[in-house]
């Protein structure tokens, strides 16, 4: 059936129009790009907007620009576009891994990276990649612009640093030379599923590391204790085991419908161990399919 909730719909051509509507309506207006979360939330009564601002006609928000070693991903850019983009494939492997695990083909054709981070659910697959690449979230208000580092973006489950009158215009990530990344996701299914646990790992050179996780804490986070331990050291079996020993200090998982706290705690060890071993292989030029690392098909 159609949505029981009624609202107005506006599809501006210019960002300024969208911003002025957002200023006027505040949280009674929702931004519509892919709609794959938004429509479900309206249908199920979680959101009751007075106005939907469809931003798909605003050209600047559809940019996917590569320059100065920086990729700007406009708010309208879908996961399908990111997966097919050569710059992402070549320079942002960790993000590429993550995008491929999100939803299914039919969802990825509409769903956007920006929409994903605005939902700010704990199991956000794109977050570990953005945290590892230290992405900047570009926000605009009427007459104002600011960039929020992604580590300051997630405040609590489903809550972000975005102000009521602001719109996310895009996300930028900077290439990190000589880096190798991997995103490992554990789901119940080999096919589309929400994450039971997700770990992103980035190795820079051979002695610098970044770790981030999702579905293991109220918000996606970097694992700084593990990074501190690893930084300055070459990857070897001993280091891997020491890193794993620090997992309890990094994550705070819960039991939910998807699995127990105990399994999340335990499986993180396996994920990190296999992830680090896989990154070693990737850095030596081997092809690794991250999905298969955990035993999925």
């Amino acid at each position: 059936m159609s949505l029981a909730h009624e609202f107005a719909y506006y599809k501006p051509l210019r960002l300024e129009e969208a911003l002025s509507l957002k200023q006027q309506y505040g949280n009674k207006a929702n931004i519509l790009a892919g709609g794959t979360d938004l429509i479900v939330n309206i249908r199920e009564g979680v959101l009751k907007p007075d106005l939907l601002i469809d931003i798909k006609r605003i050209k600047e928000l559809s940019q996917l620009n590569w320059g100065n070693d920086t990729l700007f991903i406009g708010s309208n850019v879908t996961f399908a576009e990111l997966i097919e983009n050569e710059v992402v494939q070549k320079n942002f492997v960790l993000l590429h891994d993550a995008c491929k695990t999100i939803g299914s083909t039919g969802i990825r054709a509409r769903a956007t990276l920006t929409g994903n981070i605005c939902s700010a659910v704990p199991s956000l697959d794109s977050a570990p990649a953005l945290l590892c690449y230290e992405a900047m979230i570009h926000c605009a208000g009427t007459g104002s612009k600011r960039e929020i580092p992604v580590r300051e973006w997630f405040l609590s489950p489903r809550k972000t640093a975005l102000q009521e009158d602001e719109i996310v215009t895009g996300i930028s990530i900077k290439r990190i030379p000589d880096s190798y990344g991997i995103y490992i996701k554990l789901g119940r299914y080999s096919g589309e599923d929400l994450a039971q646990a997700g770990w992103g790992i980035l190795m820079i050179g051979d002695k610098q590391y970044r770790f981030a996780h999702c579905a293991l804490s109220p918000i996606p986070k970097r694992a700084y204790h593990i990074e501190d331990l690893c930084n300055g050291n070459s990857l070897n079996a001993d280091l891997i085991e020491k890193a794993i020993a620090l997992i309890p200090s990094e994550i705070n998982p819960i039991t939910d419908i998807r699995c127990t706290q105990k399994y999340r705690m335990y499986i993180s060890e396996i994920m990190l161990r296999r992830g680090l071993m896989a990154i070693q292989k990737r850095s030596s030029g081997k092809y690794i399919e991250p999905r298969k690392l955990m035993g999925d098909v």
Partner: peptide, 18 residues
């Protein structure tokens, strides 16, 4: 599923006005 400009999408998650 329908094809929107040639791409398979979920017609239950799209507003007709879009």
């Amino acid at each position: 599923t329908v094809l929107l400009d040639g791409k398979a999408v979920r017609s239950c998650l799209i507003l007709a006005v879009e």
